[in-house]
Amino acid sequence: MFTTTSGEKIFVVDGHVHLWDGSDENIKNRYGEEFIKCFYDYHKLSPKEYVWPYKKYQKYTDEDFEQDIFQNGYVDFAIFNPQYLGDFYYNGFSSLERNETFRKKHPDRVIANGFWDPRNEEAGLKQLEKDVEKYGWKGVKLYTAEWKGDSKGWKLTDPWSYRYLEKSQELGIKNVHVHKGPTIRPLNKDAFDVGDVDETATLFPDLNFIVEHCGLPRLNDFTFIAAQEPNVYAGLAVAIALIHTRPRYFSEIISELLFWLGPDRILFGSDYALWQPKWIIEKFMDLQLPEDLAAETGQITMEMKKKILGENAARLYNIPISDGASSPKRAESPEPVRKVAPVA
């Protein structure tokens, strides 16, 4: 819960967080080492006082998470969007087990999404059934540029991917988070190209597709697709971290997203531990678009900020919005609960 200077309480859902293990013990090969190092370089886009030592960044504790997310980070509800990377790390970069254990500690504040990889074909479909039974996933995170043996990536439009999406839908998964962000390894078959979202979102109108990192740097490709597909959402992870070092640039991004998608289809995410929600949220709440941008697309309002910071994700995941008087409880009803926090 973030409290404004006028005392208004803002409900916060961090739609993109991790508990990862990039420790030396877990690193399989040079790729794993370079991956966490590259993440660490991104981390250093934070304000100086928030930069961790490398060792801590490689593997941090549950307590670090609780402190940075719940105690200091204003976050009421956090959503794990895990990344497996089994070719780089012995136990994977994210561990479903660890996420689930953590979720059980905070059942009223954590959603632990899963993942699947269509290249596991038939066996993976069976595994998906087991996983959903065990974890009760409502969302999955898909990482189309993941390496797997000789394959360096896949597309949402691959035939096996469609079978997995059908199965996901059948099993009650509603939200599909797709990592489409800064280039890591595309050849000219660009695994992070947003083009495959277009066709897929049309074919699966009942699924929500949250495009993490809003396709940056191909923001215009993304907004072009999102403007036509009502079930496509923008996940702000990475983009919003630029609010510190490049506030003008972030203003341009958010103003484009508001213009093309409107305020109901944009979701906040810190990408913790890449960046901490505390400083991002403080700066976002202070954000005023520069005059020239506001003249084009309108000024960002408090109502919009509330939607982006919490209400939109709460709607997608059936999270009841608490008013701060009592602790929030998980929704039982399939209908979205939408209650706007009263002005104090």
Binding site: D41, K44, L45, P182, L216, P217, R218, L219, N220, T223, L242, T245, R246, Y249, E252, I253, E256
Partner: peptide
């Protein structure tokens, strides 16, 4: 859009 894409890449790459 072309300028924004390039600006994002330029900034991220330099950092």
């Amino acid at each position: 859009g072309a300028r924004r894409n390039a600006a994002f890449n330029g900034f991220i790459c330099r950092s």
